[in-house]
Amino acid sequence: MTLAPNSIEQLREQLPKAKAVEAMDLSAIGELIEHVPEDMTATVQAGMTLGDFQSQLALQNQWLPVDPPCPGALSIGAQLAGNATGPRRFGCGTIRDWLIGITVVLPDGRLIRNGGKVVKNVAGFDLCKLFVGSRGTLGIIVEATFKLLPKPEAEVFLKKECASLDDAEALLEQLWQSDLQPHVLDLHRLDGRPVNLVAGFSGARADVEAQTTVASALGLRTETNLDYDAAFRPTAHVTESVAPADTINFLHSITDCDFVARAGNGVVYARHQHPEKFKGGIGDDLVFDPPAVQTRIKNIFDPEGILPTL
């Protein structure tokens, strides 16, 4: 069943009585609670979309440094539940790094808070981390507090077309060894076209300009944007995560796939060029055997099995 509560209180009443909740519509619980620019923190209800939240923050020239595809259609709750990421994760990390407080409705209807509103806080265990990426299996996040960053003074994305994966690897190594500090480091091969390396630089204008000059000497001269990520990701068949240094090796193993790869993170999104031949799995797909702790957590937080399993 799908729950669509019109208030947190209603969710607290509905959830304990619900059976086999499959989806949650929190669009009625979507207010910006507060944004304190001088503290660089903001508290928002989970039903607001990430896009709307970013627009509100932008009024004060700040942002939440995550950039998953389609922020206009992604609620804060869904963003947290899935730990959605985008190209800037290389420089900015994931939402786990920016979440400092949560309010959660537990399956038994209790409303609990964890963390707080300050950027540094070690009082109590870190349930924020537990809930990020838990896909709504332990409780429903209804409110979240984030630390924020100032919007960068300047940001630029440069790309270079590479003749082969080996060429891309050589360029990647040069970038890795240089003084450059890209916040985006992607490789992509789209519609069977050649591999492109994309590097992004952001921050103080003087830094971005200086880095652009250095990157240009390495052949990164064509200005571009990150639109490829949102266009490609929803069509990808598989996500693979390897140690960053193993990225190119992995890409060599998927010759008949298009891909977008976070080369700095070792995360690859791949799409088979002939989907009809796709047998569901490329690379070393291992069956995930959850540790006993994980099963115990689920059983303790949701003993009645009201919420889905992971």
């Binding site: 870190d126 981390k129 537990l130 990426g133 995560s241 995360v267 959850p290 540790p291």
Partner: peptide, 16 residues
């Protein structure tokens, strides 16, 4: 291994 880990973030939950 890779950064993306299946399951709950037990790493983060047990730090602190």
């Amino acid at each position: 291994g890779g950064e993306e880990v299946e399951g709950y973030d037990l790493r983060g939950a047990a730090i602190g």
